[in-house]
Write a protein that binds this DNA or RNA. Structure first.
Length: 562
RNA sequence: GCGCCCGUAGCUCAGUUGGAUAGAGCGUUGGCCUCCGGAGCCAAAGGCCGUGCGUUCAAAUCGCACCGGGCGCACCA
C-alpha cells in the first residue's frame, strides 16, 4: 500500500525534524493522508502542517517546507511539494505505481484487500421480516445491503455471521393463524365477517385453499385450529421468504427464532438481571426499563400490566444473547421507520454489558418504484404488495441488486423499473458488466493471435525477475491513471468497511469502468509491437480482476459475453 | 409539541476523517468507427451546495436557528 508508505515518510520526516532540533518536541499525531481530487495536487496529500501550526506557533506554509526539507522520499516519490496554504503534495513515481500492479498480481486480489477486521467476530442481522407475508421491495433493499456489507466485511478480515431473526412468538403470528382460519371458514361456505386488522393479502386465501386441497386435518376446537394454522401458515410463508431470498442470491448462516429465547429462559434471565442491577422498576402494574438512565429517551415497558412481555423485552434478551455468543460487533439493519427504537436498545446493551457502542444500526430508507416515470404500486391499502419476487422477475437479480446499492442506505431510493430493464449505457449495471465482457472479448481475440493471456502473465512475471518488465511500456497518462484507479480499490473497500457503506463500491466500479471505456476508445491493445501488446494485456488482466471481484462482492454476475 | 433522516446542475444522485478550482449519469446541443464489441467515446452548456448566524487556517461536510420534504413518537408488533 502506497498510502501507508506515505504515512511512514511523513512520520520519519517529523522524527528527523525533532532530532535536528527543528521541532522542539516529539510530534505524535497520525498524519492524515488523503487522495486529492483529480488534478494538479499530486497522488496523495497531507494536512499535517496545519495540525502542527498551532503547536509550533508557526505559519503552516513554513512548516510544510521544513518538513519536506527533512524528508526522504526518493524511493517512492519523484517530487514532494508544498502547496496552497500549507498542504504537502506527494507525486508518486510511475514505476512505483506499475510495481504495485505486479504486487497485486503476486498477492492475488484477495491478498491485496485490507485486513482491517483482524478476525473480529461480527453478527450482521438483516431482513428479519415477520413471516406473516411475502417480502416486499423494501426488504429486498435491506437484503441487498446486508448481504453486500457481509461480503465486504468478510473480504476485510472480519469473521462474519449472517442472521435472520424470526419473530415467531408474538401476536402477529397468532393473527396470521386467525386470518387463515377465517379464510378457511369462508372457503368452507360460511358467511363470516373478515376483520380489518387481519392480513388482507390474497396469499392468506391461498394458504387456506391449500389446506382444503390437501385435505389437511384441522383440529375441531377453534383455538387449536387457529394455533395449528398459525404454525402452518407461518412456516409456509417463511419457506416462501427463503425461496425469494435464495433467488436473490442471499443466504443466511442462521435463522434465529424468537421463541427459542423464551424456551431457553433467556428472556426471564435477562429481565432478572436488569432487576438485580436496579435498571427496572414497577409502575401501574407494569415493569419498566430505565432507558432514561442511559439515553435521551423515555422509560419503556418490559412486562405489560396483563403480564405479557413486550417485543422490547425479547429484543434485549436477543441482543444480550448475541454478545454472549462472542460477537464483538453487532450490525442490525432496520427499516428507517424503526429509528426511534435505537436509543432504548442501545440503553439496554449499556445496562447489561456497557456495550452500547458495539451495536451499529443501519437504517434502510423506503423504496419507491417508478414505472413510466411515475410512482407505482405503493398503495397503502392493506394487502397490496409490491413483492421482491415481482421485481426480480421483472428486472432480474443483477439489476435489482445493483440498483439497491446505488444509494446510501439512509436515503430514499427511486427504483426505475424501465431503466433497470434497459440494455444500454443508461443502465449502470450493463455499463459495468459490458466493460468486463469487452476485456474478455479482447482476450478472445488475443487467443486467435496465438496469445494466451494466462501464460502471458506467468511470462511477464519471469521477465520481472530478470529485470525487463513489460509494464515499463505503459507510459500514457490514461494507463497510469488506470493503474492508480485499480490500486484505489483497496481504499474504497476499506472505506466501505469502516463506514458500513456498501454503496461506495458501486460508485467506484462505475467510475473505474468509465476510465476503461475511455482508454479503450483511444488505445489499441492488440496488434501492436509485441511487448507493448503484452504490457497492455497485463493491465487489462488486472483491471478485469478488480471488476470481477467488485461485482462478486456486490453479488452481481460478470458474464464474459453479453 | 418532541425526536430521527433528507435538501447539491432541469431530473436522479455522489462528494472520504472538515481540505485546495464542486462531481457523475440522464436530459439538451454538437462531434467520433475502413480499425480489439457503438451496450462505447469526446466536447459544450448547466451551481447562492435550502436560508441566516457561528466554530475553524479551512465548511456542501461541524454547531445553533429558521424554511421545505419524509418518517417516527403505544402497556402495537
Amino acid at each position: 500500500m502506497i498510502k501507508k508508505r506515505i504515512v511512514e515518510i511523513i512520520k520519519e520526516a517529523c522524527d528527523n525534524c525533532k532530532e535536528k532540533g527543528v521541532f522542539p518536541y516529539e510530534i505524535n499525531i497520525d498524519p492524515i493522508v488523503e487522495i486529492p481530487r483529480e488534478g494538479e495536487f499530486g497522488d496523495y496529500s497531507t494536512n499535517i502542517a496545519f495540525l502542527l501550526a498551532p503547536k509550533l506557533r508557526k505559519n503552516p506554509q513554513e512548516i510544510a517546507k521544513t518538513v519536506i526539507q527533512n524528508m526522504n522520499y526518493n524511493d517512492t516519490c519523484e517530487k514532494v511539494e508544498p502547496a496552497g496554504k500549507g498542504f504537502i503534495n506527494f507525486y508518486v513515481k510511475d514505476e512505483i505505481w506499475k510495481q504495485t500492479l505486479m504486487d497485486i498480481y503476486e498477492s492475488g486480489i484477495d491478498g491485496f484487500l485490507p485486513d482491517a477486521g483482524n478476525g473480529k467476530k461480527v453478527l450482521i442481522e438483516f431482513v428479519s421480516a415477520n413471516p406473516t407475508g411475502p417480502l416486499h421491495i423494501g426488504h429486498g433493499r435491506g437484503a441487498a445491503v446486508g448481504d453486500v456489507l457481509a461480503n465486504i466485511l468478510k473480504n476485510t478480515g472480519y469473521n462474519v455471521t449472517k442472521e435472520y431473526y424470526i419473530n415467531d412468538a408474538g401476536k402477529q403470528i397468532a393473527t396470521l393463524g386467525a386470518s387463515t382460519y377465517a379464510r378457511w371458514r369462508e372457503l368452507k361456505g360460511e358467511d363470516i365477517e373478515y376483520p380489518q386488522h387481519f392480513y388482507q393479502g390474497d396469499y392468506v386465501k391461498e394458504l387456506a385453499a391449500e389446506l382444503i386441497e390437501h385435505n389437511v386435518p384441522i383440529p375441531a376446537n377453534q383455538d387449536e385450529a387457529i394455533k395449528f394454522m398459525a404454525g402452518y401458515s407461518g412456516s409456509k410463508v417463511m419457506k416462501g421468504i427463503q425461496e425469494d431470498l435464495e433467488e436473490f442470491g442471499v443466504f443466511f448462516d442462521n435463522y434465529y427464532k424468537e421463541s427459542t429465547l423464551y424456551e431457553n429462559g433467556i428472556v426471564d434471565d435477562t429481565l432478572e438481571l436488569l432487576r438485580q442491577r436496579g435498571f427496572s422498576y414497577e409502575k401501574d402494574d407494569a415493569l419498566w426499563f430505565k432507558t432514561s438512565l442511559f439515553e435521551k429517551d423515555e422509560d419503556r415497558v418490559l412486562i405489560k400490566s396483563d403480564g405479557e412481555k413486550t417485543y422490547f423485552a425479547s429484543d434485549i434478551a436477543y441482543h444480550r444473547e448475541k454478545l454472549e455468543r462472542g460477537f464483538k460487533l453487532l450490525v442490525d439493519l432496520w427499516g428507517s421507520d424503526h429509528h426511534g427504537y435505537i436509543p432504548r436498545l442501545k440503553a439496554s446493551l449499556e445496562a447489561l454489558a456497557e456495550q452500547k457502542d458495539s451495536l451499529k444500526v443501519i437504517l434502510i430508507q423506503f423504496v419507491t418504484l417508478l414505472k413510466d416515470g411515475k410512482p407505482f404500486g405503493m398503495s397503502t391499502r392493506a394487502g397490496q404488495f409490491t413483492t421482491l419476487k415481482e421485481v426480480l422477475s421483472e428486472v432480474g437479480r443483477d439489476a435489482a441488486r445493483f440498483f439497491f446499492l446505488m444509494r446510501k442506505s439512509d436515503a430514499h431510493l427511486e427504483f426505475d423499473l424501465d431503466l433497470a430493464k434497459k440494455t444500454s449505457n443508461e443502465n449502470p449495471v450493463f455499463y459495468v458488466q459490458y466493460a468486463n465482457a469487452r476485456i474478455q472479448s479482447i482476450f478472445r481475440n488475443a487467443e486467435e493471435d496465438g496469445i494466451d493471456v494466462d501464460t502471458l502473465m506467468a511470462e511477464s512475471r519471469r521477465q520481472k525477475a530478470e529485470g525487463s518488465i513489460n509494464i515499463d511500456l505503459l507510459t500514457s497518462k490514461d494507463e497510469i491513471d488506470l493503474i492508480k484507479a485499480i490500486h484505489h480499490f483497496y481504499d474504497v473497500i476499506e472505506g466501505c468497511a469502516r463506514n458500513l457503506e456498501p454503496h461506495r463500491l458501486t460508485f467506484y466500479l462505475i467510475d473505474l469502468v468509465g476510465k476503461f471505456h475511455s482508454y479503450y476508445n483511444k488505445t489499441r491493445v492488440l496488434k501492436n509491437e509485441v511487448n507493448l501488446t503484452t504490457a497492455r494485456l497485463l493491465l487489462l488482466f488486472m483491471l478485469q480482476k478488480v471488476i470481477k471481484k467488485g461485482l462478486d462482492i456486490l453479488g452481481v454476475s460478470a458474464p464474459d459475453k453479453m
